[in-house]
Amino acid sequence: MRNFLLAVVYLLVVVPAGFVARLVRDPLDRAVRPEQDSYWHYTPVGRAAVTGSVTR
């Protein structure tokens, strides 16, 4: 039963949402970009490593 419900959610929610998302911007950024020199995502200056959050 659980698998059936998950399959329904996948087909009715995830699939349409995925297609719409990909029309706007590929969530996995798969496109190769020959015009770019680099694929780095640079970190904004001043954002240090120690950025964890205390949860309780």
């Binding site: 995925g18 998302a21 990909r22 969530p27 996995l28």
Partner: peptide
């Protein structure tokens, strides 16, 4: 990843 993989990945 689920969204990016549709329609495969069920």
């Amino acid at each position: 990843t689920y969204l990016g993989a549709v329609p495969r990945g069920r």
